[in-house]
Design a protein around this nucleic acid. Structure first.
Length: 381
DNA sequence: AACCGACTCAACCGCGGACGA
DNA sequence: ATCGTCCGCGGTTGAGTCGGT
């Protein structure tokens, strides 16, 4: 009997303790909100009536102390839900509709600088919410990952602030820079030395190896038929390289190589989307080539180290030598030369190894790889 | 017309920082 | 120093929509 009474009392105490703990937990915001003050709180989409109540309250009382909104208005919504609804939908300064191309470019640029800092990014895009930006980015991320496309110039992003690079393609400008005085922004700005984004063309990225066209047999046959007519339309860099290559190796071509000529055509892409860029400064003059600091190709030629990674590794030294001696390296786009220069001088190159920059390097260097090496790449990939 | 998968986006969740008692 | 509350952030979910079959 006594034992039973003790057991009952102990059980009651434990029960009361449990109830107390449950009650205290229900008052914490993190577990919020379903039953605050004994009233079941509503979840899910807001109705226009709820919107009107909340908007009227905020208009009269201003924002802040969201948890008393329910008490004052009778809304069956928690404070967090009210704040979210106001900031993301009811604020009068919100911009509705899809992101403009300018805004998309800005988001891409900001994400390259600060990562998933949606709220910070939203500060740079007036009228846009962090939620909108986050959704936009995640959608874009999903699409481009599926397509095997890079998100931005990711591989060279670490270079942008590389203090050792004396001739960077771009740098990060902070709000307290002298020439930024007067701006209220606290977010650093990405500044390109020689180029600026055309705002309605957000497709600025380096094409990865995966975008190099992989022709099937039928397409190869078709390609062979049109190769001759296309040859005269090749970009100058390809034509001049082929001329140069022919100058170097005048011996009769190997018949097996001849059959592969159509595979050796330059890829149908431009290493950089030139349409996305406007040149602000004229290309460097020829005298630049003589200046080791501003060599049109990286002086230490580290970019060439990435190439054997893609090839079979047996003949890369001769290919490097050929590339180095190639007269037409002047045809390399000045911007790409800057990128290569930065990459070759980057500490990140040492830290991450060549794989981190492989795609970027290869897309730039590809047009300058002799055809026979391209064939080797095609066979081994 | 029905179904299905992809996509969009509003809303929720959990966490952590700030701040006052 | 500790606790409770508020607030904001980033990640995730799920309902609705759209387009293709």
């Amino acid at each position: 009997m006594i034992v039973a009474a003790v057991a009952t009392a102990t059980g009651s105490i434990l029960f009361l303790l449990l109830v107390k703990i449950m009650c205290s937990l229900s008052l914490e915001e993190s577990s919020d909100d379903d039953h605050r003050g004994g009233v079941a709180l509503k979840k899910g989409p807001w109705t226009s009536e709820e919107d009107a109540i909340l908007a009227e309250y905020v208009t009269k009382n201003g924002i802040g102390n969201w948890n008393i909104v329910r008490q004052r208005t009778g809304l069956a919504r928690c404070g967090k839900s009210c704040r979210l609804r106001w900031t993301n939908h009811l604020r009068p300064d919100l911009k509705k509709g899809a992101f403009t191309p300018q805004e998309q470019s800005k988001i891409i640029e900001l994400h390259a600088l600060m990562g998933n800092k949606w709220a910070k990014m939203a500060q740079e895009l007036p009228g846009r919410t962090d939620n909108e930006i986050k959704n936009f980015w995640n959608t874009r991320l999903k699409k481009r990952r599926r397509a095997g496309l890079p998100l931005y110039l990711d591989d060279i992003k670490p270079l942008l602030s590389n203090p050792q690079s004396s001739a960077p393609s771009a740098y990060i400008q902070y709000a307290n820079d002298s020439n930024q005085a007067g701006t209220s922004s606290s977010v650093p700005k990405l500044v390109f030395n020689n180029f600026t984004l055309i705002s309605d063309n957000p497709s600025l990225y380096v094409h990865p190896i995966s975008e190099i066209p992989q022709k099937n047999t039928f397409e190869q046959q078709q390609q062979q038929q049109v190769d001759a007519s296309l040859a005269s339309e090749l970009p100058p860099s390809f034509q001049s390289f082929d001329d140069n290559y022919n100058d170097i190796s005048r011996q009769p071509p190997d018949p097996t190589e001849t059959s592969l000529v159509s595979e050796l055509q330059p890829p149908s892409f431009i290493p950089f989307d030139d349409n996305a860029l406007i040149k602000q400064q004229p290309p460097p003059t020829e005298t630049c080539y003589d200046d080791p600091l501003f060599s049109r190709l990286p002086p230490n030629n580290r970019h060439l180290d990435a190439i054997p990674k893609i090839l079979d590794g047996s003949d890369h030294s001769s290919m490097q030598e050929e590339l180095l001696n190639s007269k037409n390296k002047e045809n390399l786009d000045p911007t790409n030369q800057d990128v290569l220069y930065d990459i070759s001088r980057s500490e990140d190159y040492d830290n991450k190894g060549e794989n981190a920059f492989k795609d970027t390097l290869f897309s730039i260097v590809y047009p300058f790889i002799p055809p026979r090496f391209k064939r080797r790449y095609n066979n081994t990939s």
